[in-house]
Computed example of a mutant assay.
Amino acid sequence: MRRAVLSYLVTLWAVLTLNFLLPRLMPGDPLAALLDPSSSDYVFDPEVRAALASYYGLDRPLPEQYVRYLWGAFRGDLGHSIRLNRPVADLIAAHLPWTLLLVGTALLLSSALALLGGTEAAWRRGSRADRVLVATNILLANVPVYFTGMLLILLFGARLRWLPMAGGRTPFARYPSAFAAVLDIGRHLLLPALTLTLAMLGAKFLLLRNTMVTLLGEDFMLVARAKGLPEGRLKWGHAFRNAVLPFVAHLAAHAGMAVTGAVFIETLFDYPGMGRLIFESVTARDYPVIQGVFLVVSVVVLTANLAADLLNARLDPRTSERAGQ
């Protein structure tokens, strides 16, 4: 437990440092648009341009900027957006719930489908159903997420017109009830969530299926069969129970993959989440927003890793014993 928490803190410090350095290593400058005479945002007064650079701390030495950044992150002060002139914390608070809704929905759906489908495919290994499921999930694991998203948009949005093609909810809508609001948000969520679910399903399915196929030949399964246990207990009580341990251990990595996929999906569907905010901020070289967004995303992923480690130790006490040796 202590080692996991210490590793979490060290990794968090490393992430904070990289989060500070990477935007500054990018080509361009966050005030480039304000200093470019051909830009519509050009500031003509040189004193105002200098005051802007001083206000955002970009005229200070890099070590001083780093110390100010760490102190601000420790206090929860993520600064102000250069592009939008709004507190970064407010921007994140407005976008983070949408990403959590999208990623959480996709993680739950893909995990449930992978657990059920992977277990059945492994139990019926070599059958036609197994071969079809394996081929389908290999295809899903290798298809680019934006290609899947475009197909779903063309089919369900443009062709059939069953679902909205963009946005998180209907613009300027007035809902007569909370249920109507949930229904509208759910309809806008379906296509992005389905795209992310399909993008993650293949790897999850193959992991569980292959782990369970390996376990079916283990000695404890042969002994359980020799005892005459019913098929349901063999499948779910012995094989599935042991195959799910590596699946839980990889959930944190899947969460990181989901956040990465959300950047493309939210941009494709114009979904108002963190991915869309990242894309727009990187394009504008908005250092405070880039730092704040990546910091929050990193903390979410690291927390998911820590939770997965603790859950895995709870499900499999052997991991705690090995860590203590």
Rank of each mutant, 00 (worst) to 15 (best):
M1E: 09
R3L: 14
L6M: 14
L6A: 15
S7I: 11
L9P: 01
T11E: 08
T11C: 12
P23A: 03
D29V: 08
A33D: 13
L34V: 12
P37Q: 06
E47F: 10
R49F: 07
A51W: 08
A51G: 08
A53P: 04
S54T: 14
G57F: 06
R60T: 11
E64N: 05
E64D: 12
Q65W: 00
Y66R: 01
A73H: 04
G76K: 09
H80P: 01
S81Q: 01
R83N: 10
R83Y: 12
A93R: 14
A94R: 11
A94Q: 14
L107N: 00
L109H: 01
L109S: 07
L109P: 00
G117P: 02
A121C: 08
A121I: 02
G126N: 07
A129S: 14
A129M: 10
V132I: 15
V134G: 02
T136H: 09
P144N: 06
M150S: 11
M150H: 11
I153Y: 01
L154M: 15
L155S: 04
L155R: 10
G157W: 02
R159H: 14
R159E: 13
R161S: 12
A166N: 09
T170H: 00
F172C: 10
V182L: 15
I185V: 15
I185E: 13
G186S: 13
H188Q: 11
L189R: 05
A193F: 05
L201G: 00
G202T: 06
K204S: 09
F205T: 03
L215Q: 07
G217H: 04
E218V: 04
E218L: 05
L222R: 15
A224I: 08
A226D: 03
G228A: 12
L229C: 10
P230Q: 09
R233E: 14
G237E: 11
H238A: 05
F240A: 06
F240K: 01
F240T: 02
R241P: 03
L245V: 15
P246F: 00
A249R: 04
L251A: 13
A252H: 04
H254L: 13
A255V: 15
E266Q: 07
L268Y: 07
F269T: 03
R276G: 03
I278N: 00
E280F: 05
E280S: 11
D286V: 04
P288H: 02
V289A: 00
I290K: 01
V293E: 02
V297E: 00
L302Y: 09
A308G: 05
L310N: 04
L315I: 10
D316I: 07
R318G: 11
T319K: 08
E321C: 11
A323L: 14
